[in-house]
């Protein structure tokens, strides 16, 4: 019981850190996407399946998961021309694949970007991407404050809660 409560506390503390990392990785992905669109006019699918956009090889970041889903859909269907990039993006923003590390706020920001992505000219796309990047940066700051504030609290809470339960049951 003590071990279970401690693990739960440590896990909650870990999630706070993971959220910060998730938001930062998404922000970097958005910035790289902006570069692809602004300087090379790379079509959306080509840009999104580039490994550089996904970040670390083993990652649960938004762009890493998106890349996997897009490649899977391209393989399942008859080729890149059949992939519905927007539908995949919006499905990912539904949060089904991120029950813990991402919250509704960040997924909502990514969802808003997904709705406007690819439907207008380059200047407009850059504005949308920069806005998303700013929003994610501000969210990352809030998430960092939250992490600093509650990370050690969750760890202590888990350990002490476990101890308390042990004492109560003994």
């Amino acid at each position: 019981m003590f071990a279970a409560c401690s693990a739960l506390g440590f896990y909650r503390a870990f999630l706070l850190g993971r959220r910060v990392r998730w938001i930062r990785e998404s922000m970097h992905g958005v910035q790289r996407l902006e570069t692809e669109i602004a300087f090379a006019s790379t079509p959306l699918l080509t840009a999104l399946v580039k490994p550089v956009l996904a970040g670390a090889p083993v990652s649960d970041s938004f762009f890493a998961v998106l890349r996997t889903l897009l490649l899977k859909q391209a393989a399942e269907r008859r080729g890149a021309g059949e992939v519905d990039v927007r539908a995949v993006w919006l499905e990912l923003c539904g949060g089904r694949l991120y029950p813990f590390s991402a919250r509704r706020e960040e997924l909502q920001i990514m969802r808003e970007l997904g709705v406007s992505l690819g439907i207008s000219d380059r200047d407009d796309q850059i504005k949308h991407l920069r806005l998303t990047s700013h929003q994610l940066a501000s969210l990352a700051e809030d998430a960092l404050v939250e992490q600093q504030k509650y990370e050690s609290m969750w760890r202590s809470f888990g350990v002490l809660g476990g101890l308390l339960l042990v004492i109560l049951f003994v």
């Binding site: 006019s41 790379t42 079509p43 699918l45 927007r86 690819g118 439907i119 207008s120």
Partner: peptide, 17 residues
């Protein structure tokens, strides 16, 4: 019409300026 343009431009209107 939106869907048709979307497919024509592969969801990337900006690359068809």
């Amino acid at each position: 019409c939106r869907k048709l343009l979307d497919k024509l431009t592969a969801h990337s209107v900006y690359s068809f300026e």
